[in-house]
Design a protein around this nucleic acid. Sequence first.
DNA 1: GTCGTTGCAAAGCGTTTGCAACTAT
DNA 2: ATAGTTGCAAACGCTTTGCAACGAC
Lengths: 159, 159
Amino acid sequence: MPAASAQSVIDLLRAKGLRMTPQRRAIVAEIMSASGHITPVTVARRVEDRVPGVNPSTVYRTLDLLEDLGVLSHAHLESGAEYHRRAEATHVHLTCSRCGADDSLSIGEAAALEAVVSRHRGFQPDLTHFAISGVCARCQREHARPSPRRGSRSAARPS
Amino acid sequence: MPAASAQSVIDLLRAKGLRMTPQRRAIVAEIMSASGHITPVTVARRVEDRVPGVNPSTVYRTLDLLEDLGVLSHAHLESGAEYHRRAEATHVHLTCSRCGADDSLSIGEAAALEAVVSRHRGFQPDLTHFAISGVCARCQREHARPSPRRGSRSAARPS
DNA sequence: GTCGTTGCAAAGCGTTTGCAACTAT
DNA sequence: ATAGTTGCAAACGCTTTGCAACGAC
């Protein structure tokens, strides 16, 4: 499913009268080929490999632009903000607060959740915007361990 | 339901052999009297009123300490990290991405959600850790408006 | 030639840290 | 006296901004 290729994004930008610079091409290529979510910092790092010298601010500006155009969306995971193709915004992230494992709900499961929430005063949730934190089955089994959340603030992530 | 008073927290700290400084007293008093959630910055500002000169780093260190001791928890809302009494961690936050309105699910609704999620490979969710973003009923009705998310990055909040 | 885009450098913001001075016990 | 705490100041990590130079069209 070519849920929007890099080329289609370039076409969209052109149609809007916007310009295709080498930097922008590289950023679009990177984000459209990335699977799942990716942080701005990671985009910047990878783009740097393709086109040395690309400034982080250019990356941020481009991500904002693509989000405004509806191509991208961002979500808040344990590790901070992450971008993903909007067409792929079907992932409801489950993040284990102990081991950091990242899983996601199926479309069906997500729909069931949405139904429950929307019953609350007609609130229409976007379950992809924030992750759902919790403890994965594996970590629950290992509950003998005193649960690593004392002391160091870094069991799995920022949390 | 005295879900842990400022005094009980002080007693706990004492029992742990920790010390009660005026700064710490003020911070504990502030956070234990706050209803719902509060940001570290707000805590710092309010504590400053009680005991002028309290350094923000002291606030952060104390919040961390109280979280380690199990008195507090933090959650990620649209506006960033917020702390709340752990005993009060029953709020599943619903945040409207358009108007910024903040609502919360009832215990029952939260339980229903939890049931759905936990069916997924035994993942035990903590639905209080991240807010649930979406569009409230009122904003849905006003959908004639072109939806304020172009241009300025500040429709309601950081989003 | 226009006007969108970029790099640069600085600033912003919330948070963290090292360390010496301080103080509750 | 001892160890927990604090203030200070600096650093941090990520993101944003103003502005002049640049370059896609």
